[in-house]
Write a protein that binds this DNA or RNA. Structure first.
Length: 508
RNA sequence: GGUCCGUUCGUCUAGGGGUUAGGACACCAGAUUUUCAUUCUGGUAACACGGGUUCGAUUCCCGUACGGACUACCA
């Protein structure tokens, strides 16, 4: 496959949905696999829905995820500009060519007239109330008006749109790389607006024109576009670009985890997982939606997870680096059915990639959190903590959460545990152990254990009899990482102090 | 409603005319771990339904059901 040119073409109406990230990823994988070009085009033809900051957000999100753009907004390239609003003057000539060829027409219908038409058809029991071959001759357009009248309206500045004149009863075929051949009868397609009354093209015209001009080889987009794909095919035909038409691949949708339907922000909020790659603050409502990044997801984990939502290599391997994904990716192996979004699997991937990191890398996460909490800790200690916590974490932040007891001595102890396990004998052993540790030099997990064994033996006990209490005394918790390692990290003096405090508060 | 798309364990999926229908996540159990977690071992669990075609269908075809997308001067 040579000259693969793909585009990710979001519209800046808000934060980038996680499904959009997957669409971008698949585009990117195909581009990289074939040494092609990944283009970012911003489809901002709807000026009323423009959200400030959305474009920057999209660019930052892709950058964070590791999806690199070769050409496009924020990057430039031979087909600049890549923002459709800036390409506005370009589109009209194509619409006019369509009119000149008799494939499109001016329409002057007001909103009320359109509404009236739909009502009329509905009342007549018509199954589809569309502006098309059945209805266009009853409407207010350049097909029904005299050339003179049209000219006058245009000159008078009467608002108009340009509509595609979709032929009646004609089979339109397209080959979708994922779904095979799709056939639609043109009578099902309405006379779509190509140019809006504000002079902007609609998505349909803009995307076809731009894909052609930008020499796009593959259009990989969500399944929600499949119904309008035949319309796009028609446009390529009318514009005389049939031979240059890109190949289509309509991706299965990302579905909500429970029940059915497209994954939405509401579902994500309700179930407590992010829907956006980066934290997004809605400029209008100031509502904040936490992102994957801020929630502690690693980009490599997210990408691996996303890649497998609708695609798989056909082998049993599930862990893929971005490069491996690139090497293995093929459109043919993309599934047809929608995929329910399973956040647990995402967490599993995250845990996996987190564990693959070195203690030094994990320590860096911990140190950052510690610093934000105004807790001082040296690198060596942080690395030791990372080492004993690394098997227990899903997110970087867990390191901080689970290591709190290292920096903060417990102030109260579980009543149940005390009443069950605490007695004078245990207190005596603990007191003796604390004393031993205080004087022990070069304390390690091994020596801490040896001393514990010796101390308990002196009291005719076994280590197991006091370990749970010891953990409670030292950490305030009933469960946690290896206690002897924890003691090594805390140091003899600190341990002794905590034991002393516990004896004082519990026996009182 | 209409059009289009889809349907293998709870979830992501592999597979494909004859298989003990495979893996992963999740879940459950056992082992290890003094705890929890990890790790290891094992387990529960699926071809939506009905007709064809065929010696044989989960796989191919047709229906049905169910689900989804679309049906704007939104993308």
């Amino acid at each position: 496959m040579d000259n693969v040119r793909v585009r990710f073409a979001p519209s800046p109406t808000g934060a980038l949905h996680i499904g959009g990230v997957r669409t971008a990823l698949y585009n990117y994988l195909l581009a990289r696999k074939h040494g092609g070009t990944m283009i970012l085009r911003i489809e901002d033809t709807d000026q009323t829905r423009y959200v400030p900051g959305a474009e920057e957000y999209i660019i930052e999100s892709l950058a964070w995820a590791g999806i690199q753009i070769d050409e496009g907004v924020g990057k430039g390239g031979p087909h600049a500009p890549y923002r459709q609003s800036e390409r506005k003057p370009l589109y009209k000539q194509y619409a006019e060519k369509l009119i000149a060829d008799g494939n499109a027409y001016y329409a002057f219908d007001t909103e009320a007239e359109l509404e009236a038409m739909r009502e009329r058809l509905k009342a007549a029991g018509d199954s589809n109330q569309q502006y098309g071959s059945q209805t266009r001759m009853q409407m207010n357009n350049s097909l029904t008006l005299s050339a003179q009248a049209v000219k006058e309206k245009l000159e008078a500045g009467v608002g108009y749109v340009i509509r595609l004149k979709v032929p009646a009863n004609q089979e339109i075929r397209l080959t979708d790389l994922i779904r095979g051949e799709v056939v639609v009868n043109s009578s099902q397609i309405d006379d779509k607006v190509l140019m809006k009354s504000d002079g902007m093209p609609t998505y349909h015209l803009a995307n076809v024109v731009d894909d052609y001009l930008m020499k796009i080889s593959h259009v990989i987009r969500g399944e929600e576009w499949l119904p309008s794909a035949p319309l796009h095919v028609l446009l390529y035909e009318f514009l005389g670009w049939k031979s240059a038409m890109p190949r289509f691949a309509h991706l299965p949708l990302l579905l909500r985890p429970d029940g059915n339907g497209k994954l939405s922000k509401r579902d994500a909020d309700r179930m407590g997982f992010p829907i956006f790659p980066l934290t997004w603050t809605d400029p209008a409502t100031h509502e904040v939606a936490k992102g994957y990044k801020e929630s502690g997801y690693l980009p490599e984990a997210l990408l691996n997870f996303l890649a497998f939502l609708g695609w798989n290599p056909g082998t049993e391997k599930e862990i893929f680096s971005l490069q491996e994904l690139i090497d293995e990716f093929t459109i043919e192996r993309i599934g047809k059915a929608g995929a329910k979004f399973d956040i647990q699997k995402a967490q599993w991937y995250n845990q996996h990639y987190l564990r693959a990191k070195s203690n030094a890398e994990l320590a860096a996460y911990l140190l950052t959190d510690l610093k934000n909490a105004n807790v001082t800790c040296d690198e060596a200690k942080a690395q030791k903590i990372a080492a004993c916590l690394r098997e227990r974490i899903t997110f970087p932040n867990d390191l901080f959460l689970q290591s709190k007891f290292f920096f903060e001595a417990p102030v109260q102890f579980d009543e149940q545990m005390i009443s069950k396990k605490w007695n004078a004998e245990v207190a005596a052993v603990l007191a003796a152990y604390g004393k031993e540790l205080q004087s022990a030099s070069g304390l390690t997990a091994e020596s801490a254990k040896a001393i514990l064994d010796a101390t308990t033996a002196q009291h005719s006990m076994k280590a197991g009899q006091v370990l749970q209490v010891l953990r409670m005394v030292l950490t305030g918790q009933g469960a946690g990482p290896d206690l002897m390692m924890s003691i090594e990290i805390m140091g003899g003096a600190e341990v002794a102090q905590r034991i002393e405090f516990a004896i004082r508060t519990i026996t009182k």
